[in-house]
Design a protein around this nucleic acid. Structure first.
Lengths: 339, 339
DNA sequence: GTGCCATGCTATATCGATGTAACAAGCTGC
DNA sequence: GCAGCTTGTTACATCGATATAGCATGGCAC
């Protein structure tokens, strides 16, 4: 009792060989019902549990998959993590969660590093990784990327149509008569990431409405937190002509912007409209509630886990797969009628 | 190149024995400078990385610690997770994150189960675990508990003084002249958890102010999300006499309550005060911003990681340790002056 | 009855690392 | 000159599981 039982102890207790115990554990078919029962009983009696280190050493598998996101306290990622864990659970896998801070070095270490070792594959939401990093990656570890499609054809990828989503959001604002639409978190030239795609969608909607693009309305941010949104919005409100809408590239930015409006004595949607991205839980309960692009997070998680497990089970399979999942515009108070 | 190099390959390349390579990797002191250099070079040349499964099997250690929380999309826990990961990182450990959903079965499995295996110890924030579960626990895995002190003397524990914190928050409301203070998420008799302690603090403040305790002002909730807070607040607003303050046992509940006030055409702090717990980032940016008890999350994380690593390094050490860390009341608009 | 196959099970090697014991070489002190 | 110690290194066993190969047994076809 002092030390944990090994497969050998179970074998002795049941009067069979260790391999037979292993066969029972792994549901190998050619085991007689009688032996199977005896082994099960022994396992029960001794309270035996497989030692995963031993198993991994032998089979090279752990049954765990990694999920690496920039920041867990960005609600989009914690909500996504929840869905990924649920999806993995349904398929009998455990999720190991990593936080990269969006830093290239740590994104790389999630792919190659020490931590990656206990893992059969990884779902990675990169911010700083370059296509080159992915091309030269260690091909042993199956990878599925979330977010922007970084390396077409090289790695599996799941995401929403960011260009279309941003276009829809912008069209919604235009349809409401807004003409001076700022984009908070918008991409400056050369950046990689979903911000680039969303900025593209924003510009394409403007173009279609024959509204000239004003670079001054694109405000990049360092992080995607409330504070950054509040700061960016405060600056925009001083601008003349004042924007009549803010398209914020995530909900935290948008909620921070709402706070800045409040401090400036303004209101959405009376004085200007505010729209976010991600549909985090907070966006349904803020005052005013927030219009936002709602990506189908559950599908993203589901598809990502499926793709990854496929890669793990059939290594060296076909070409990289690219899957788009749905999104919709959830119109709420911040760009709708007064409640 | 096809397959990953093993320690044996490095040994051959460097012309030494595998054990010598191991000695270099583990900074064993009695290795000549010359050999050490040769081994380092070989490691570099082959791109060798230790296989953790092999190491764990031999040493029984992984260098990873687990953190198990009820829900990652409760901001308090994702913020805490961030701090724990940072603290672990500073001490050269990696964190494996689990979500229990607050369900007893999954809290148990975090302690005993499959998942706990790649882990040298666990920091657990339990919701449903009974003291009995902890007393009969598998003593091999070092544990540090967060939240309420479940099993005094049995397991290490870190937390704030929840009774005092709730008392301070209540006193603050009383000092502002509030007399009908409801407690959202308050504990009904017999429950375990921080809600019980906080309810105790609330009652003790009322008692000191000679205000009779009204059971109808204690509203339990099922979960600790916006929605539950909104629902509970909506019900309370229909009550006569209407409460003049809501003490909500976490910030999500409080933010949901603010939303419900808004929908009822009321405002904090004009019509009633609202106070939360946890000081999540959202509480500083809501409209109105939220008065809340701010636990020192960084210290909680730091102390928890320290305690756990001590337990891991010196198993079977002294008696269980109980550490209180600081908190403060952050007074903001929801119970303060108009901005 | 012989040959062949499927089934049920076992003995042994192996995954990759490290602990143990042991050994060679060099140094100290007397 | 030898015991006794320290240092640098190695051979081998071992952690706990599973893959492989192989040994019995029994059934079937001919």
């Amino acid at each position: 009792m002092a030390t944990r039982p090994r497969i050998k102890d179970v074998a002795e207790y049941a009067g069979v060989s260790p391999k037979t115990v292993s066969n029972v554990i792994n549901d190998f078919e050619h085991v007689s019902e009688h032996t199977r029962a005896a082994v099960r009983e022994a396992i029960e009696a001794l309270g035996y549990r497989v030692n995963l280190a031993g198993r991994q050493l032998r089979q090279g598998r752990t049954g765990m998959i990694a999920l690496a996101v920039p920041e867990l306290d960005v609600a989009y990622f914690s909500e996504l993590a929840k869905h990924v864990m649920a999806a993995a659970d349904r398929r009998g896998r455990t999720v190991l969660l990593h936080q990269t801070g969006g830093v290239r070095e740590r994104e790389l270490s999630a792919l190659h590093g020490f931590d990656a070792q206990f893992t059969d594959g990884i779902i990675l939401s990169p911010l700083s990784l370059t296509p080159r990093d992915l091309a030269t990656r260690d091909t042993r570890l199956p990878v599925v990327l979330l977010g922007e499609r970084q390396a077409p054809g090289a790695v599996d990828h799941v995401g929403i149509d960011n260009v279309a989503a941003a276009r829809e959001a912008t069209e919604h604002l235009l349809a409401r008569g807004r003409r001076t639409i700022a984009i908070v978190g918008g991409a400056v030239r050369g950046r990689q990431g979903t911000d680039r795609l969303r900025t593209k969608g924003y510009r394409s909607a403007l173009r279609a409405a024959r509204i000239p693009f004003a670079p001054g309305l694109v405000v990049p941010v360092e992080h995607y937190h409330w504070q950054d949104g509040a700061r960016a919005a405060a600056a925009l409100l001083d601008r003349r002509p004042r924007p009549d809408a803010l398209l914020c590239l995530n909900d935290h930015l948008a909620l921070g912007a709402l706070r800045a409006l409040h401090e400036a004595g303004l209101r959405a949607p009376d004085d200007l409209d505010v729209v976010g991205f991600d549909d985090i839980e907070a966006s349904r309960f803020s005052v005013p509630s927030l219009t936002t692009i709602a990506p189908d997070k559950e599908s993203i998680a589901d598809v990502a886990v499926s793709l990854l497990i496929d890669r793990i089970d059939r290594p060296g399979a076909e070409h990289a797969i690219d899957r788009l999942v749905g999104h919709r515009l959830a119109v709420r108070e911040s760009s709708g009628e007064r409640a």
